[in-house]
């Protein structure tokens, strides 16, 4: 314990306290997930602790639960639609924000942020009402486009921050070699932006897959997304089937983490 040496008791106690809280918080972050994973292998049909035995039946039950599987597929579709729309709409917008030579680039960046700053439920209610007035009823498509609008800012911000750190000399070199703007975009800028787009894609997909606040007002009556289905399941049953869903999600989250850390690095996530 070398750094205790030569320090005043107040300092040791003070920093010790800060570090103790830090360790407590880190345990608090991870412990519930570990407990849920343990529960998901329990043989008993109601939630108790400690578990009585080991079984995979809850995982089997998840995939035999028709509504749950359908909800998962719906959310998968929403997640993918949101991701594709965010790439198609967001990447060019980021280019315009950073490379544009028109008045109002800042205004454009702020404009894109606005729907993200508004609480999700307010956006959900607004889209539901506006849709009803023009005859668009809630559906998986209304849900997808609403979540896209809500989360687009994340894609734009991720690509924007990467774009601002790119060396402009690379694009100038391409122009000097007589590449057309499109060629330079395709062969120089775009490959360099790929990691940021991939990271943005992970976050927009997760939002599309998991969003409840916007989805609860805009989802189709028959196409219930996973969060809506899960909320009902958690509220009205106590079987460990939700724990098994958690187990599946944790595995997916680890996969997503690996993708993000390999594409832009974990430490770049919130820039």
């Amino acid at each position: 314990m070398k750094w205790f040496r030569g320090r005043s008791p107040v300092d040791v106690v003070g920093i010790g306290l800060v570090l103790a809280v830090a360790v407590f918080s880190l345990v608090l972050l991870v412990a519930p997930s570990i407990i849920v994973v343990i529960i998901s292998f329990d043989t008993r049909a109601y939630v108790t602790f400690p578990p009585a035995g080991f079984t995979l039946r809850w995982y089997k039950a998840v995939f035999e639960h028709g509504e749950l599987v359908e909800a998962m597929l719906n959310s998968l579709q929403v997640g993918l639609t949101v991701t594709v729309l965010c790439i198609v709409l967001g990447v060019p917008t980021a280019l315009a924000c950073v490379r544009g030579r028109f008045r109002g680039t800042t205004a454009l960046s702020v404009f894109v942020l606005v729907p993200h700053m508004v609480p999700g439920i307010v956006l959900g209610v607004a889209v539901l009402f506006a849709g009803a007035l023009v005859g668009v009823s809630p559906s998986i498509w209304l849900q997808s486009i609403s979540i896209t609008v809500f989360i687009l800012a994340v894609m734009v911000r991720t690509v924007q921050s990467r774009l601002m750190r790119l060396d402009p000399a690379l694009e100038e070199a391409a122009a000097n070699l007589r590449a057309t703007p499109f060629q330079s975009l395709r062969t120089v800028t775009f490959p360099l932006l790929m990691p940021a787009i991939l990271a943005g894609a992970v976050f927009t997909f997760v939002e599309g897959f998991d969003n409840l606040s916007v989805a609860i007002f805009t989802h189709g009556f028959r196409d219930r997304p996973l969060p809506v289905e899960l909320l009902a399941l958690v509220q009205y049953t106590s079987s460990p089937i939700v724990a098994a869903v958690s187990g599946v999600q944790i595995v997916l989250a680890i996969a997503a983490l690996v993708i993000v850390s390999m594409s832009i690095g974990l430490d770049k996530v919130n820039e």
Binding site: V47, L212, V260, L266
Partner: peptide, 22 residues
């Protein structure tokens, strides 16, 4: 970083369910 980013990639409902269990 892993402990703070991983929870953001799983559903809030699932993480709330954990507290139901606890």
């Amino acid at each position: 970083l892993v402990l703070t980013i991983a929870p953001l990639l799983t559903s809030g409902i699932v993480r709330t369910y954990a507290w139901l269990v606890i």
